[in-house]
Amino acid sequence: MTAVVVGFTMIAVVLVDDVGSGIVEKWPVVVEMVGGDGGGVGGWMVTVQATDQVVEAVELFKKLVKEKICEPNQVMYGTVVNGLCKAGHTSKALELLRFMEASSCKPNVYQYNTIIDSLCKDKMVDHALEIFAKMVEKGVVADVITYNSLIRGLCNFGQDCSKCGKRNLAMDLFDELCLKGLKPNVRTYTVMISVYCQEGLFGIAKEFVRKREENGYLPNSVTYNVIVQEFLKQNEFQEANIFLEEMIDRGFFPDATTFSLLLHLTPSIRQDSPMQTIVQKLVNL
C-alpha cells in the first residue's frame, strides 16, 4: 500500500498483486482521509474503481477492515455499496452488507435502501422484501425512499400480474407509508394511480389525483399520460376525455403511447364524443 500526504488529506491507494510479484495497473480501491491531520482526525472515504476487478476490490476492502488498517464509517461503507450496485454487482453489495451487519459499524437505512432499490430494479423484488423485513427486524426505520423503491418494484410487472398479489401488496405498503406520515414522491404517486386503474378502482384513482392537487402536487405530463392511458385501456372513454381535456388545457400533450392508443380506439368512440374532436385537433397539430 502506498500513501501520499497532500496538505490535510491523506490518500491511501491500495494496489492488487495478482501473482505476488507484480502490481496490476488498475486501482480497485481508493481510501481517502478527508479533513484529517494525519493523526486519525477526519473521516474516511472510499471509492470503487476498475469495475472489472470488483471481486478483488471487495475482498481487499474487507481485508483492510479485518486487519484494522482503517476503521470504516457509514460514509465509507455506503460509498462502496452504492458503487457496487451502480456497477451491476448487487450480490457483492449484499455480501458487504452482511459483512457490515457482523461488524461494529452496523448498516443504516442508506445502505439498506441502496440494495433494496438495486434489487427492485433487477426485478428481484421478493429478495428486496426479505431485506426490508430483516431491516425492520433489526430496528432500522424505513424511510420514504425505502417505500418508494418497493412500491415501484412491486408494480413493475405489467398487466400479466393482475393475480400475483404484488399490486395489492404495493397498495398496502402505500397505506403504511402514508400512515407513518411520509410523503411519496411524484413517481410513486404516478405508479399508484396506474395500479388503482389496473385494479378497476377508478374512483380511488381520480380521488387520488385530486387529493394530490389539494396537497400542492399538481399532475405533470407523466401523471396525465398514465391516467389517460389506463382509462382508455379499460374503455372508460368519458373519464379519459375529462383528463385529456384538462391535460391539454394545462399545456401538456399526449405522449407516443397515449396518442397511439387514441388512434387505435377512435373507431370505438362515438362520433359525437368530445374526444373525437380532440383527436382530430391533435392529428392536425
Rank of each mutant, 00 (worst) to 15 (best):
V209R: 08
I131Y: 02
K138G: 09
F157M: 07
I115L: 09
C164Q: 05
L129F: 11
E137C: 04
E137L: 04
L177R: 00
M135L: 03
K106E: 06
L119A: 02
F132S: 00
E137S: 06
I151V: 15
I115G: 07
D172M: 11
Y189A: 04
E101D: 08
G181V: 10
Q111W: 00
I204E: 14
K138T: 05
F99R: 03
L119D: 02
R210F: 14
V144P: 03
E137I: 03
K183A: 13
D122F: 08
M192G: 04
Y196G: 03
C197N: 02
Q111G: 04
A102H: 06
S194Y: 07
E137Y: 01
I131Q: 04
G158V: 01
D175C: 14
A128E: 01
A142K: 07
K121I: 05
D117A: 04
G158M: 01
L182M: 15
K183D: 11
F99C: 06
C197R: 02
I116V: 14
D122W: 09
Y112H: 10
M124R: 14
M124Q: 14
V109Y: 13
K166E: 01
A102I: 11
A205C: 05
M124Y: 04
N185D: 15
V141E: 11
P184A: 01
D143L: 07
S162P: 08
Q198T: 09
T188C: 15
C197L: 02
V209E: 07
G153P: 10
E130M: 11
R98F: 10
V186N: 12
V186D: 15
N148H: 08
A102M: 09
E207D: 14
E130A: 11
K211T: 12
L150H: 05
P184R: 01
D160V: 09
V209N: 05
V209M: 15
R210S: 10
A205G: 05
V141G: 06
M100W: 08
P184V: 01
S104L: 07
N185V: 12
L154R: 01
L154D: 00
C120M: 00
I145P: 00
V136Y: 03
P107S: 04
F157P: 00
E199H: 10
S162Y: 12
C161G: 15
D126G: 12
C161N: 14
I115N: 05
V144K: 11
E213R: 14
V186F: 14
V109Q: 07
Y112G: 06
M171W: 09
N168I: 03
G153N: 09
G153F: 08
D143V: 02
A142V: 05
A170Y: 00
T190L: 10
S103P: 00
A205M: 05
R98L: 13
N168E: 13
K106D: 01
G200D: 09
Q198N: 11
Q159Y: 12
G165L: 03
G181I: 13
A142Q: 13
K138V: 03
D126A: 12
M171L: 14
R167T: 05
F208V: 04
D175F: 03
I131M: 03
V109H: 10
T114L: 08
Y189N: 12
L154S: 01
D172C: 08
K163A: 13
S194I: 10
L179F: 12
I193A: 15
N156C: 15
N113Y: 00
T146Y: 00
